[in-house]
Nucleic acid binder design. Sequence first.
DNA 1: CCGGAGGAGTTGTCACGTCAACTCTAGGTT
DNA 2: AACCTAGAGTTGACGTGACAACTCCTCCGG
Lengths: 162, 162
Amino acid sequence: MTETRPLEPEEWELWDAWMRAQRLLVRELERGLQRDCDISKAEFSVLVTLWRAAGRELRVGELAETLDWDKGRVSHQLTRMEKRGFVRRTRYGTDGRRAGIGLTAEGRRAARDAVLVHGGNIRRHFLDPLTPEQASVIRAWSGRTVDRLEPHRDGGADDSAS
Amino acid sequence: MTETRPLEPEEWELWDAWMRAQRLLVRELERGLQRDCDISKAEFSVLVTLWRAAGRELRVGELAETLDWDKGRVSHQLTRMEKRGFVRRTRYGTDGRRAGIGLTAEGRRAARDAVLVHGGNIRRHFLDPLTPEQASVIRAWSGRTVDRLEPHRDGGADDSAS
DNA sequence: CCGGAGGAGTTGTCACGTCAACTCTAGGTT
DNA sequence: AACCTAGAGTTGACGTGACAACTCCTCCGG
């Protein structure tokens, strides 16, 4: 089927350049987040997701689905963030299972700050340097890549045309 | 200076789509590497870098420079890979410092395999789905992003035109 | 009512990645 | 020679991420 010959130099260079750019961008943004808001990328993702739920408590499974994270990862992350005072697990009824996840006041404050600051950093490092052509190409490529690699996916707000 | 207003929905969507695609792609390739070659992305990077040195022993600092990794990270990674039998630290003279890093026979075998298999996976998941236009746009964007964010960088084979 | 299947969360383990502190050596200064 | 400083590597601590095993509960069939 797929003949496995080594990558041509220019193929390798494209791949390497893309990986490098992607990694540098993510690292830069994560450092900004850490420096300006004292939170990590993972914490940001959780804070924003809960922030968007507008007060409604989410379940671990919903968080995992929305973020496309392993549920174990979500649970670990929540444990750390609970320790930092950003989120609260509220348990339903008598049993230990079935926890609802909500932001604390501190978590809401952090989310509000981070959305502003991090949004600005994303503009500066990612959006602003894009030419309109690059933006549309990257948009299209991202959409197709996600469609190709995301296993299930239905509830999203994605309406990317082919 | 930079007015910090929240991202517009379509700005956010572009960012989110890109992040998601990038993450899915990296995860998919890493899984392939683990499944087919039983090595991690980090191990792959080190193996390939040493492989390309064609027998010459590299220093920790050279590895860190080439990979753009923190030297502590390199050291940790080498410790793990030494334990797996992929690399060897050879110490110069009487002192404990100044180690040269080389591949073992096992490491050479793993590198040869991985270059083929992983190369095929990169083709399948990244290169082949790209249209020539997308490839050139992504190439240009990657080059400029690296130039903008990489602090020093000089010895590279990068000749990306503006 | 009992027992098993399955789903939701949690926990453990291990590798990765970052940062800062530490060690050892070499080289320069006095 | 004694000092001290800069560079190279190592180490430790901690958060992140992937994966599998485990616990509880619920539900369903007998």
